[in-house]
Computed example of a mutant assay.
Amino acid sequence: MKLLSSVSLWTLAVFSAVLEISQAECDISGCEGNDTETSTTTSIVNCTISNGSSASENGCFNCCKEATTKPPAVMNLTATNITASSISLEWSKPEGNISLYRVRWNDGGFNETTGASLTITGLTPGVNISISVSAVAGDTLSEGETATLSVYTKPEVVRNITVTQITTSSVSLKWTKPEGNSSFYRVQWTDGNGNGSDHVTQTNITMTNLTAGVQYEITVTAVTDDGRAEGQSTTVSQYTQPAGVRNLTVAGITTSSISLKWTQPEGSSLFYRIQRTDTTNNWGVSVTETDVNVPELTAGVLYSFTLIAVAGDHKTESEVSEIVHYTSKRMNHTSDNVLVVCLVPQPFFQHYKLRGEQSHHQKKADKTKKHI
């Protein structure tokens, strides 16, 4: 009987010790209030658990705690559309149980979305935006590693492009700085045959070595620091000044007309505008040839002629070339000595010579007939 009691007491002692060890491994007081303990690992000993899933099996975190693993990082984070004030993002959903995604960007920008895409709005034009996206598990607490992306918003369009000066070989422009940020401006031009480009940091440029009288299409674009993000281009069309005509001369004169001729200027021009002035009136005409006859003039009068080359826009003009000349004087038939030449069909002509004398009552005429 004593032996039985002794065994019972020994058994009771062993049982009590095991109970104390079990209670030490699994503290019941820690489970009160349904508290949750979060794990940042991807595997737990004695537990079967997947990424983003929960586990509350015996032996995991003091037997009564719930554990959630971190989700993997999102993949293929891409900016699909960029404007001056917005960036649209897309990414691939990672494996595991994902409840939402957290998106953060410059200056405390933050948003959450359940889908694998988001458009960030209200951004400043032409600035670098650093973006991070992370997946969040079903407990809304366990957050995976972030995927990051750095991208510039597009600069705004340049404004108020104005042509300030043109010559036969250059065009000068100025414009207003766009809103937001930009690092420099890319200026490109073409006449349809050749191209040119330049980069400037100021809001003006003079393009040189151009062809006279030619139309150029000029575009100005704001560019960011990385040299890749460009704003919308602004285009202006402008002709260079035609070169002045060369070698303007009088080709012939009569009592009622003056003929002019000249050499075509270098470069290009659409037509020529000739104007004449005298003391009574003005006259003008446009021609495409390099000569003109100016009719209906008065004999013995001094006339001034101006000539300009005009570009294809009908308004851009060259410098003025000018020439001054008299028309021929009309013959005076009442003078004492008059020479009259009459032309007759070949093979012969008759030459008459009239000589005036002092007497008003008698005149003597010599007639000579010559054969050719």
Rank of each mutant, 00 (worst) to 15 (best):
E20D: 11
L12W: 01
D336Y: 03
V292M: 02
V7A: 14
R104H: 09
S197H: 11
R228A: 13
N111C: 04
I82S: 07
L77N: 11
E357N: 11
E20I: 00
A55V: 13
T280C: 04
V151T: 13
T153A: 08
A67I: 04
V127R: 05
L12N: 09
H325K: 12
G194K: 05
V127Q: 08
W10Q: 14
E179R: 00
G267V: 06
T290W: 02
G213E: 13
K353Y: 12
T219K: 02
L89V: 06
S88N: 06
V341F: 05
T78G: 07
Q350L: 12
I323T: 11
T153E: 04
V245Y: 00
V171Y: 01
S172H: 03
A73I: 07
T48I: 13
S86Y: 00
C63H: 06
S286F: 00
N62R: 03
R246D: 14
I161S: 01
S6F: 11
V344W: 03
E57P: 05
V294W: 08
N51F: 03
S39C: 15
H361T: 14
S5H: 11
A251P: 06
R228H: 02
I323H: 05
E143A: 08
I21Y: 14
E289R: 14
P178H: 02
H314Q: 12
N195F: 11
N204H: 07
E357G: 08
N128D: 12
V245A: 10
Y303I: 08
W262R: 10
L141P: 07
P295W: 01
S22N: 14
G96P: 01
T78C: 07
G59Q: 06
A311F: 03
K370N: 12
E319G: 15
N97C: 01
N106M: 09
A67L: 10
S132F: 00
T114G: 12
G122I: 06
C342D: 07
V45D: 15
S22M: 10
S197L: 13
S130F: 02
I129V: 12
P295N: 03
S53M: 08
E32C: 03
H199Q: 14
T167Y: 07
V320C: 10
E20G: 05
P347W: 01
S359W: 06
S328T: 02
E296G: 03
A137N: 15
L100H: 12
S6Y: 10
T11L: 14
D226E: 04
Q264N: 12
T235H: 05
G115E: 05
V187C: 10
G312L: 09
N58T: 07
T201H: 08
K174A: 06
S183I: 00
L149Y: 01
T68Q: 02
K65C: 06
T306A: 13
R355V: 15
K363D: 14
G59V: 04
V250F: 08
T80D: 04
T148F: 04
S169M: 03
V136C: 03
A73E: 07
